Amino acid sequence: MKNSDTFQRFLFEDMGIRGELVRLDASWQAVLQRHTYPPNVSRQLGQALVAVTLLSGTIKFKGALIIQVQSRGPLHTLVVQATHRQTIRGLAHWHDPVPAGALSEVFGEGRLVLTIQNEGAEPYQGVVALEGQCLSAALENYFANSEQLATRLWLFADGQRAAGLFLQVLPAQAHADDDWTRLVTLADTVTEHEMLHLPFEDLLYRLYHEEKVRLFEAEPVVFRCSCSRQRIEDMLLALGKADVEAIIAEKGLVEVDCDFCNKRYQFDRVDIGALFSEEIKSTPSSTRH
């Protein structure tokens, strides 16, 4: 299918307004294959993955953008990540049953956290209340309150694909309010079927054939988990030798599962002994000569 696993920017010439399109196919299926999600959970997760991919295209960074929802309702944890290389991953935790409906019904009382992890810099974090009819509304509230940028998102997901459309006023560029209102009104007519199935060129023509639109080169999006044995070893070292050896004494080995990709890492007594032995060797001596 054309535009499968694709991120693509576009620009309204002479308006100071930009847009983005995303469609996830194999990358979305890779997430679904690792956990069995109820439909009402997978729909929210798919929309969140589209959102984090769209938003990652609005900032210049080298690292990762994370959207996290923490709440007290049926769907109590939702975490999605996109990197500057357009790799994505995500997961959700829930208590059955998860209803369909507004955010207050699906998530309950909660908050939405956006984190930018820029390599070589302290993470930047923005927090907004989880309010609105849908996830796109909560994200739009974030931009209105934190960034003071007019922003709209349209997010869709089913069991096969996830897709989305993004519009935003460019920072520090002049635009007419009538232009913004017209573009948003036209985007509000987009249907789920069009977003999930129409080629991007056809979709933009359907919505904006009377506008001057520049469509930029498409970029591929892939599922990729950043977990590794080295990262798990670092986590165990941070946990400390006494606690890790207590786990070994009780269970005979240490098992760590990655929630994102379901990969299991196992460490037996020999592995743990070698791990902490290497730590001792690599610790510089404090003795002065």
Score class of each variant (00 low, 15 high):
P74M: 01
E192N: 04
D243E: 15
G132Y: 00
E194M: 04
T283Q: 09
R269Q: 12
L237I: 08
A150C: 07
H93R: 13
T283L: 10
D178Y: 10
W154I: 03
T77M: 14
L215C: 00
G126W: 01
L167C: 12
Q133S: 12
A137F: 09
F7W: 13
L167A: 09
R214M: 11
R72F: 11
A102M: 11
V31W: 06
T181M: 13
I67L: 15
V113P: 07
D177W: 15
L204N: 07
A137H: 12
P284A: 03
A64V: 15
A51T: 04
I88V: 10
A172D: 07
E255N: 08
D259H: 15
S27W: 00
I59N: 13
F223M: 08
Y142E: 02
I272S: 06
A48G: 04
P220F: 04
A129V: 14
R288H: 06
G90Y: 11
L165S: 02
E119H: 14
I232D: 01
S146Y: 02
R264N: 13
G273R: 01
A144E: 06
A82R: 02
D234C: 07
R111N: 11
L149Q: 06
A102I: 12
A157T: 06
Q47L: 08
A242F: 11
K281Y: 13
D234N: 13
N3F: 08
D271R: 00
L55N: 00
Q81F: 11
Q125Y: 08
G90E: 01
L167E: 07
P39I: 04
E192S: 07
E217H: 11
A102Y: 12
V113G: 01
I66L: 05
V270T: 05
V169P: 01
C134T: 08
D202A: 15
F260H: 02
Q230P: 09
R229C: 03
Q33A: 07
D5K: 02
F216L: 15
T53G: 01
V128F: 10
V221L: 09
A100K: 03
D259W: 10
L239I: 14
N40I: 04
F276W: 06
L54H: 13
C261D: 05
A138H: 07
G63P: 07
R288T: 03
D177M: 11
V69R: 03
A274W: 09
S4V: 04
N3G: 02
Q125P: 14
C258S: 03
L165R: 03
F223Y: 15
R9T: 13
L54E: 11
L11W: 05
Q29G: 06
H175I: 04
W94L: 05
Y142R: 01
M195F: 03
E147M: 09
H175W: 11
L11H: 07
L21C: 08
F260L: 14
V22E: 00
Y124D: 08
K62R: 06
G273S: 05
W180D: 02
E210I: 10
I59D: 14
V79L: 12
Q70A: 11
M235W: 10
